[in-house]
Design a protein around this nucleic acid. Structure first.
Lengths: 241, 241
DNA sequence: CGCTGGATTGACTCGGATCAAGTCGAGTGG
DNA sequence: CCACTCGACTTGATCCGAGTCAATCCAGCG
């Protein structure tokens, strides 16, 4: 079975056989979560680094009012903050979106991995930087983009990320995210998101239905979003312009 | 001269004399930036880790439309992403807000520091986690809080962070941030921010004027913000409840 | 003393939230 | 095979928070 975590890290640097062996071993103990099941909750003591191997998950926070804000989507290959283990309690929760296979790397194993395998540490650090960069892009979206721009931007991001890990390279893509979940990630109402999606469909930019995203006019979508893929840092340091 | 960077890291773990010596050395080469001067711009190749020793700075992004979103405020003692050096180009810019004294730790020195001084590495990693956590809080604010809640929340955050590094423990605090800068960080208009500030002043929660924040009724402000300081992770792992 | 950038206030408009009905599709049980 | 249910998606009507545009106002400063 392919390990998407290893695939993803390979994009961030060269891993030798020994690196791969260590990573396989570290992620060999897995658990399966049902949709909407929490992997860990805000306030819990973090016990290790989660790695999503199959399915989707999301980070989120719940406000006193009961509304929810999704902070990030985790797709196969994605993992959580490298050093969470240092914290006393989680500041947010993580939940499976679909059925999901998840490995947990214990703190000590993680430390050992980071110390003994420089290539792995390097790749993990880059992965972490990309996650941070993505958070910045989200802040920017929420603060300064209109709702259509925001939706378009998120779709561009998810599409590129999914393509990076090899989830189809066509313009069609399986996105198992309900409109209300997406709305919670975009800081808007499900009702309003629905209208925005309709509008994007009518102008022929993209269609999202029945769990599938089809980008009919990539150029148009990118233009609406003001999307600059640089923040995903797909081109790395050694490659000079 | 006190080094606020070292002070801050000391809060995140015990540093011995040798640790302090290394940190002093690493941050000994400083530069002074004028207000509004960029330390580095989006697209530039990152050359090292910036550490703000005096004054304030902010991270920001500029959108195609020309509007700006501030992503974070850096106060004395704060530093930038530990591993930026791994990236090919910055995904955002950093600018001095006030006149600011800034040290730059070169990538190689940083690596050496992280490898040879475990206490320092530990403290830096925690500092990094707190920064990430803060970004999550910002996303949550932008997505799901009303403008008054957002303003109140940011003020609580800045107040606590400032107090942590010893910038006065009274309810009054020097905040050298213009209303339009704050507005750019809160995803709102300067005009609207001004009205919200007026409202918060009228209900007796807080007053922000002439660069000084006075929290007249902390309980009320916290309640409006729905502020939970947990995300700043001031209580750390070893301390059990 | 006038200039300049920030802070304030007013009038008007509009994007999105809210509230309220549906509709559609998949799964369940009779 | 059809009725029932439940969750997710659509659509309409209405309202309000926040943006926009445009005047001031004010303090610091050359």
């Amino acid at each position: 079975m392919t390990n998407r975590f290893i695939d993803k890290l390979s994009n961030f640097g060269t891993l030798d056989e020994e690196d791969v062996r260590h990573l396989s071993l570290a992620t060999s103990e897995t658990a399966v979560f049902r949709p909407r099941q929490d992997l860990i909750r805000e306030g819990d003591r973090p016990s290790g680094v989660f790695v999503v191997l199959q399915g989707w998950a999301c980070r989120y926070k719940v406000l006193p009012s009961g509304t929810r804000q999704v902070l990030a989507f985790l797709m196969p290959g994605d993992c959580c903050d490298l050093h969470v283990g240092l914290l006393r309690r989680m500041d947010h929760s993580i939940q499976a979106v679909t059925q999901a296979t998840v490995a947990k790397i214990r703190r000590t194993d993680m430390d050992e991995l980071m110390n003994s395998r420089p290539n792995v540490a390097h790749a993990l650090n880059i992965s972490q930087l990309v996650d941070e960069s993505t958070m910045r892009a989200w802040i920017t979206s929420m603060g300064r983009r209109t709702s259509s721009e925001r939706v378009a931007h998120l779709m561009c991001e998810l599409y590129l990320r999914a393509r990076n890990i090899g989830l189809k390279s066509e313009s069609e893509l399986a996105l198992p995210l309900s409109q209300s979940l997406l709305a919670d990630s975009l800081g808007m109402t499900a009702v309003h998101l629905n209208r925005v999606l309709k509008q994007l469909r009518l102008i022929g930019a993209m269609t999202l239905q029945r769990g599938s995203l089809m980008i009919s006019d990539p150029a148009k979508l990118v233009q609406i979003a003001g999307f600059d893929e640089n923040y995903l840092h797909r081109r790395l340091l050694p490659a000079d312009d």
